[in-house]
Design a protein around this nucleic acid. Sequence first.
DNA 1: TATATTTGTGTTAATACTACACAAAATAAA
DNA 2: TTTATTTTGTGTAGTATTAACACAAATATA
Lengths: 230, 230
Amino acid sequence: MALQQDIKVAVDAVVFGYESKGNLSVLLIKRGVEPFKNTWALPGGLVLEDESLEAAVKRELKEETGVTIDYLEQLYTFGKPKRDPRNRVISISYFGLVRPNHFKIKADTDADEAKWFSVNDLPKLAFDHKTIFNTALKRLKAKLLYQPIGFDLLSAEFPFSDLEHLYATILGEDIDRRNFRKKIMSFDFVEETNKIAQQGSGRPAKLFKFNKKKYDALLNDGFYFDIKFV
Amino acid sequence: MALQQDIKVAVDAVVFGYESKGNLSVLLIKRGVEPFKNTWALPGGLVLEDESLEAAVKRELKEETGVTIDYLEQLYTFGKPKRDPRNRVISISYFGLVRPNHFKIKADTDADEAKWFSVNDLPKLAFDHKTIFNTALKRLKAKLLYQPIGFDLLSAEFPFSDLEHLYATILGEDIDRRNFRKKIMSFDFVEETNKIAQQGSGRPAKLFKFNKKKYDALLNDGFYFDIKFV
DNA sequence: TATATTTGTGTTAATACTACACAAAATAAA
DNA sequence: TTTATTTTGTGTAGTATTAACACAAATATA
């Protein structure tokens, strides 16, 4: 066959941020080079020759924003011939969910600036990154309904309302507090502690904790969390 | 940045075959060139410079097996540095489901031979194609439970048992005929005709047909088919 | 004519989901 | 110090869905 092929391979990361009482946000960089210089974009870049895709996306993320993240899930591969005006670049996209205040954002040479943006108030994005973002948000919401992925984002011990708020924020809609609580508790991997939150106003809340061991055991058994009703 | 990168981009197709009373099968080619010469592999190959990923996978499939298919869904992108012994190749994999007897299988120069194999009796596969296959099978089963993807595989008018059999075959387990029928009929896109099957033994069956219009309308409304119980 | 095969059909019990409101415990304000 | 505000914690009843289950009818085949 002996076919000449010159296609570049890139990775892009859609990193969502959530923190208590906060909004859902996404991490963007302002591009420091052409094309799309000074336009906001998803962090990402070309894969090195001997580097796995996962390693590449984590490296780029680290370089461009200072954020290190250990779980990113592959989202989709975008490969339209003209998605990059320079030459053919296919992009394997990943997404993840973190607590923004765990990181000190820090841009490097390729990226002038890195910043969290509320998902409800995004700037114009470079390339087809809006499409990638939309795909990621849709997937994040869908995933939340059958896997309680949000627990990493809470404190080790948290009031139940934090979890409610997380779901409501990501899904972008209110949930029935009683039904939600019943459902989550039925899974049996959230446990009540005997501690009480140091609180602001209102009745003080019991603190709960996530039993990762039980959760992982269930996952391994192929258990399927059905939070669809929310 | 000016980074030299020489990574090849390939696509691979996991094409499942099902036909009435048949097994679930998958389309493989016997490689005619090194590496893995004479080993069975998924059809696929390098993407051309100005060709979309979807176009590439359809083209390769056509070239290597003679099968044309209009709906392939992106599955996953495999990119471990050493997955191809020659040089770095990442593969974007796709999967689809067809009726084998709709096609005359025909190999070309790159592939000595193309053949359907029962998924329960696969030969050793080249590269990481076994992993790709496993991923595809898992996804196919999962998908079947929330989208009735199998209707394309049936005759335009089919006895209900054909549909039952399709589900049982793909899922690899028996289903409750009554409950399954009730569930499917509740979706309201399968309609009874007044025709009767020309049959073999047993009580003759009414023929049903799939109302694609209704189905598409539901899909567009974001409807979610829940066949999870099967 | 008897046997085997396949289709067609309904009910009941158990489970899961939805919708909904108010008292209790604390802080903040008057 | 009293009152208002905020937030937590909790139960039930009606509805819908699921799961489990068996036998008669219609035909082909032996």
